[in-house]
Design a protein around this nucleic acid. Structure first.
Lengths: 404, 404
DNA sequence: TTTGTTAATAAAGGCAATGGAAAAAGATAG
DNA sequence: CTATCTTTTTCCATTGCCTTTATTAACAAA
């Protein structure tokens, strides 16, 4: 049993600073006195906390506001540019590394393919990328640390990649490996967990406290935010959403089971259905033109475009995806009752039709009382979502007060 | 957005007191100096905190321990008997009310049938029961409050029963209704949520921080403990585990869907399968003797006894229950990764066979890395589990430090 | 110019934890 | 049995953070 943190004076201060910084980030520009009113702290305390935050370079004064009948308020803003963070996103196909500010805006970014590396080769590749990147970095001083996110099961506490079958990474202590080489504090987390944090810090869902975040790509994963903090599960393997059973005695999955959601809705599944439609069944579809008769050109974007053109074949395929996905989402909603379900992945981007149909489908399947509360949205993170994920993890670890 | 609590000296004290009380409860009898060592607080702080706890009657000194080479330590114990709590458990068939100490041991207990009451009649019945019970109670002074638990969707924050279809209770503000009449602080919570708390406070699972608690009775519900605190979901409707889809196009459920878990594994389903086996199919089973040829005598205990006698018909039925339940549990485990899944309900009690088979079945269905970590146990709460549930809710609300 | 209001800061006081010293109560070596 | 060392608990002065109560700054309205 990990020891719980006890209370001392430092704890009060940390907590209050964290709350004040949060208010400035979310509601800035804002005056000291308004902060005091909002969170019910004495003006004096706010003043001294803000002084510290300004010293640390996290906050700056930015002119004055309009008077409410007396002295004009001095407006405070969050300053994301005084500290940098290094984000590293590992996916099956590539390694992205970037130097960012505290809002996840990239100052410099590099992308490397994974060269089909697996196991130790992959680990070496990652370490090499980090070292090379740091070598070119001017000021290490303001760097708050390195944040690594990856699919698979991660022990975030110890910074170990426990299990990633596609990259063949088993019990890789990435945190210590990177810290040894760089001497920078390093965080390692699961990608879906990081993305749900990012939605909360940088996205449109900052006011929500119970989120279910679902990514659909080569695999299907989920991240959960519960009572305002990421839920990782006992071994850090929560969110194995892709292996929800949606068909009894369905197709075999590499996990050893049959009928796993993943095999019905991930991109390879959709891709192969499109190909089958075109080649085997000789179906007429707008895709044939869009890809210039080259099947290798079928990418998620093509799928979405076809949906938006109301293509018959693609709509059929999408209906099937929705059918399976909505069963799994429905079950998760019954267990979790999140305030919003956020979908992400290439086939979701700009796909309003899918979102609407999904919402209807889920609403039709849940218990009556939840029916009109179902809220399914697309991710608000934009194209650099992985980087925002890494930034969120480090921001959370460094600047957010947590008891445990 | 509900305002977050800011830090002051009172917060520190509350936190430390709560931690110290917890240590004494779980590890007592224990000396002041050992507490200081365990939680890394200064001995001085422990002494003064313990002084307060003794003043409040929550802790008492109980003799001295063996010396470790110096002065003998004074041993401290948790004193559950100086405060009382009133627990009220509402189920579909009865209302239980009891006067208890802080460990959930009943001093006085009364059980009323529900008389098929529904809606307002039921509410009046509950209020009547509470008033009558309080009327006979000698010392109201030490009473910490009233705790009500009930199936269905509950807004625990505001103490409102949002939705209970069987008792036809919709948006009943029970907390205010009871507080108006009794002037005692009242807590209202969902039964499964309360039971998972009880497992953590009074059961064998106090060291676990991520629990999934499943009740099987007339309905099927789930309570979840996440990072050491109960997870209620956005509207308080988390844990609607009974409406997980386990069969496509299965039997119709009263929720409007088909194939809900509930209809395959709850007691009415099992009961009707037994009756069908005996009456329609003329199956030979030990049950016929056990119930003296009267079908009304078929109770969950009979089912369990038959299982333990390896009765063919009953084993078939149980295998079916396990098949459906394990699908749902498997999905939940993938999403949640709880440290342990706790099963409760009449058909689970003393049913080691079911537990073992369930464990095997779930383990065979989860992703490889989880296979040997699957931990499924029977509830440790004993026959008065509802009362322990009510006690846990009030104990948690009154004596457990929480930030939010 | 006077008066009233809002914003920010300064000084003093309250309070919880802490570290050091001391008291209480034994253990142990000789 | 005495002197010394340990362990446990408590007392006291100190530290540090928040709050209350002025005080100053800056402005609006009359």
């Amino acid at each position: 049993m990990q020891r719980q943190r006890t209370g001392d004076l430092k704890l009060i201060q940390e907590l209050n600073r964290s709350i004040i910084l949060d208010v400035i980030r979310k509601k800035g520009p804002i005056s000291r006195s308004e902060i005091a009113k909002i969170i019910d702290l004495s003006p004096t305390t706010v003043t001294s906390a803000v002084y510290e935050l300004i010293q640390e370079g996290l906050v700056y004064e930015d002119g004055v506001g309009v008077s409410n009948g007396g002295r004009k308020p001095v407006l405070l803003r969050f300053n994301p540019n005084n500290h940098t963070i290094i984000g590293l996103s590992i996916s099956n196909s590539m390694v992205k590394i970037a130097d960012m500010n505290l809002e996840g805006e990239a100052l410099r970014k590099e992308i490397y393919p994974t060269y089909q590396y697996q196991g130790q080769e992959m680990v070496d590749h990652i370490l090499e990328v980090v070292e090379q990147f740091l070598f070119k970095k001017a000021d290490i001083d303001n760097c708050q640390g390195i944040s690594v996110i990856t699919p698979g099961i991660v022990d975030a506490q110890n910074g170990v990649i426990t299990y990633n079958s596609k990259l063949k990474l088993y019990d890789v202590p990435l945190k210590s490996l990177i810290e040894e080489r760089t001497h920078l504090p390093t965080y390692v987390d699961n990608d879906a967990n990081a993305l749900v944090l990012a939605e909360s810090y940088f996205g449109s869902f900052s006011t929500y406290k119970d989120l279910l975040f679902i990514t659909i790509g080569d695999g299907v994963g989920a991240g959960m935010m519960v009572n305002g903090s990421v839920f990782r599960g006992f071994m850090g393997s929560s969110g194995e959403f892709g292996h929800t059973t949606v068909v009894q005695d369905g197709v075999r999955c590499e996990c050893g089971q049959t009928g796993c959601l993943e095999n019905y809705v991930n991109w390879p599944a959709i891709y192969s259905k499109i190909v089958t439609g075109i080649m085997t069944k000789g179906r007429d579809t707008v895709i044939t033109e869009m890809i210039d008769h080259n099947l290798n050109n079928i990418h998620p974007k093509v799928f979405v475009d076809a949906v938006n053109q109301d293509d018959e074949l693609v709509m059929e395929i999408m209906e099937e995806v929705i059918r399976y996905l909505s069963i799994a989402i429905k079950n998760a909603v019954h267990l979790f009752n999140p305030e919003v379900v956020i979908l992400s992945g290439d086939i979701i981007q700009n796909n309003v039709v899918l979102l609407e149909k999904m919402k209807t489908s889920v609403a039709n399947q849940v218990i009556p009382i939840l029916q009109d509360k179902i809220n399914i949205q697309s991710t608000s993170l934009g194209p650099e979502f992985e980087l925002l994920g890494t930034a969120a993890v480090i921001f959370h670890g460094k600047f957010k007060f947590q008891l445990s």
